[in-house]
Design a protein around this nucleic acid. Sequence first.
RNA 1: GUCCCCUUCGUCUAGAGGCCUAGGACACCUGGUUUUCAUCCAGGCAACAGGGGUUCGAAACCCCUAGGGGACGCCA
Length: 504
Amino acid sequence: MTTVRTRIAPSPTGDPHVGTAYIALFNYCFARQHGGQFILRIEDTDQVRSTRKSEEDILAALKWLQLEWDEGPDCGGPYGPYRQSERSEIYREHVQHLLDKGHAFHCFCTAERLDAVRKQQMENKQQPGYDGHCMSLSAEEVQQKLAAGEPHVIRMKVPREGKCVIKDLLREDVEIEWSQVDMQVLMKSDGLPTYHLANVVDDHLMKITHVIRGEEWINSAPKHLLLYQYFGWEAPVLCHMPLLRNADKSKLSKRKNPTSIGYYQRMGYLPEAVINYLGMMGWSMPDGNEKFSVQEMVANFDIHRVSLGGPVFDTQKLDWLNGRYLRESLSDEEFLQRYAEWALRTDALRQIVPLIKPRVERFSDVVPLAGFFFSGMPAINAESFAHKTLSAEDQLKILQFVAWRIEEIKDWKRDVLEQALVELAGKLEIKIRDFLYPLFIAIAGTAVSTSVIDSIAILGLDLSRARLRHAMQVLGGVSGKQQKKLEKDYQSLRGAAQQGEGDN
RNA sequence: GUCCCCUUCGUCUAGAGGCCUAGGACACCUGGUUUUCAUCCAGGCAACAGGGGUUCGAAACCCCUAGGGGACGCCA
């Protein structure tokens, strides 16, 4: 019997996501249960969005949750490198092999042409996809274009008839018609592979036996299976987990929920509670016990106990669980130690000191002044927002716009933030002083406080956004209709500066 | 629009044809303990999406409908 090997393959394009931890947990448990290995691979083939900072944060977050990997970019292993950006040559060789075998072809189509084709197909109510335009190019034409240095990608060929049968560990065979499968780009014009190629090549080379991943991948499984076939490799066992959901059942997103693991860390949740909670999303202990460690989960693990309905990530139960850990699992001494570790993060405190020092006369002033950096949501109600000129509606608008605006900030720095807010206030034609008022209440719980811009900068995006969201709710919330209008206003306000951004 | 997946209390779930009058947990409500509050304890509210089959028997199996979600990128 071959050794079971599973992996988590995050893309370092943002904050460490609870969904990543969720999938990692199940891969980890499956591997450990079978005495196998769990591998961490960084999928950073998106040069534009991937960052080292994000990679470091993801590693730290998974470590915090005690999900330890046997091989990875930090600790190496026999099948490295474990960072896709360092494996370009491997992909190039493999894609060349596909080209030689006639399983892939060069494509010189422009983005404009592809958009037009897609639009046309949509109008004709067809499944949008590549129309095979460049497949008809002769070998000479291709050589000519390549010699002329024309930008191009490499696409995989896909059968036009028949269907693909996907075996999944958790469901009946899934059948997808090949006609529904697009001629996926395997190699981008920058010479780097897309997910589909890199993933298949790496999983094979790294001897991954079981691919446990989110349900969102089911539809692209045929592409992957076809690639295994083209290469003449045995495909790993596939297993698609349900997706974590927002309260409205849509896929968990940071717009509607705090999704970054860092948020839960900074809000004072214990890693053992967070991982335990993730373990009860779609899975349960055979004896029904709800408080369990990762070790206990491994000992009792059975992938078939996964239920397929997408679980709503509702933190009420996490709160209860965390409370149990705090009071049942920690001695007073341990509590003290863990609390101190959490509260006295010198890096965070160092940022706060310059803000409060000018305002204190005694150390005893510190907690009342800076307490909001360490608390959860400030204790506020609708009256907290009473203002001489701004109505609740005005304030709601400001809060929502700011929530949206700070999401777009890539370079999270105080000055960048300040500039963004000043600009936004200007466009709204509200005096900055008034504009900041609801932010003070939302963030610090009071208008008598340290600079709110600095506060947001220090709290970070997740914590700040959660407070803005909380404040909006306190102010009565925004209806779906209002939301739409606000969104429209916001878009026109942002104008050309607006740029799309992923939600994960 | 096309394709795919899913569907048990508000939420997380148990349930592999008779053990189901559907169990547990969170939340909520009530009561008890507690100088208050919290904890803790006891109790309560609350669900098999709908319709057809199959079967002696269906929450479980099949079909249809509805609802929800996902995928359709030179993102992963």
